[in-house]
């Protein structure tokens, strides 16, 4: 069984967001790039599954769509344990453009299980995994918080409102994963970092693609009014404010 983990290269989650002077694009100068948190969890789970020798998982590949500046993020994924990496040489357009590129990667790679994070922490689209599965015309399962292999089958836990379901779908499929898929993201060890330098990172040309959406303009949220402080000895005052001023009680 071959697993592909799709990786989005995103600014560190503590990054202060800045825009170009005309506010039409995001200013990424000085940004620290990381593996999108959900993709990192997906990769962690993929490694756990592969290392359990009772599972017949042969390889874990990571792929991203982006310019060469995304290579360090792919190397990090290799250091965590992925066997090889693929980067589609392309500027990233919208989710549809990225999904089109990843679909081409999937078609050329014969993967059985494709893992995508539920969203990327930059544009919060929650779209690439679902789009990818529809382009490939294969099953997708979303809100996935558990994956285990049972012989030739993969058993999937997905979150539903107020609970969870255990489901399976025929291979190949796309699982769109979220919290719970792995407990904590795996951190690369020194040995992994050394080994990652020698692992294959293949750069492939982009296929023809289009975009269905575009960003016109960015803005920061309006500054909010300062917090009204209530003395710890006057809790009653807080109740009054919540009832009469905020009108939420």
């Amino acid at each position: 069984m071959r697993i592909l983990v799709c990786i989005s290269n995103v600014p560190d989650t503590t990054t202060r967001v800045k825009f170009s002077s005309d506010n039409t694009s995001v200013d990424n100068s000085g940004v620290q790039w990381i593996i999108n948190p959900w993709d990192e969890l997906a990769l962690t789970r993929a490694m756990e599954l592969k290392e359990d020798s009772s599972n017949a998982i042969s390889t874990v590949t990571v792929a991203t769509v982006g310019p060469a500046t995304a290579d360090p993020t792919l190397r990090k994924a290799l250091a965590i344990g992925a066997d090889d990496a693929i980067r589609v040489e392309s500027e990233t357009g919208d989710a549809y453009q990225v999904a089109t590129q990843l679909a081409a990667v999937c078609k050329s790679g014969d993967f059985d299980v494709v893992l995508c994070g539920i969203e990327s922490s930059d544009y919060n689209g929650s779209a690439v995994g679902g789009m990818l599965s529809e382009i490939l015309d294969i099953p997708s399962v979303s809100a996935v918080s558990g994956l285990k292999a049972e012989g030739e089958e993969v058993i999937i836990s997905r979150d539903i409102d107020g609970g969870r379901e255990e489901v399976s779908v025929p291979l190949p499929f796309v699982a769109i994963v979220q919290k719970g898929i792995a407990k904590e993201p795996r951190i690369a060890a020194m040995r992994g970092i050394m080994m990652a330098r020698k692992k294959p990172l293949q750069v492939v040309p982009a296929v023809e693609s289009e975009t269905l959406t575009g960003y016109l303009e960015f803005a920061l949220p309006q500054a909010k009014a300062p917090c009204k402080m209530v003395d710890a000895d006057h809790v009653k005052e807080l109740v009054g404010l919540l009832q009469n001023e905020a009108k939420v009680l």
């Binding site: 989710a95 995994g129 789009m131 529809e134 769109i176 269905l212």
Partner: peptide, 19 residues
């Protein structure tokens, strides 16, 4: 929500409709 996130992207491709 969970189901919207599961289906809307597939529909975006199927209908060629921006999401």
């Amino acid at each position: 929500n969970n189901s919207g996130k599961a289906i809307a992207p597939r529909l975006s491709v199927r209908l060629k409709a921006g999401l």
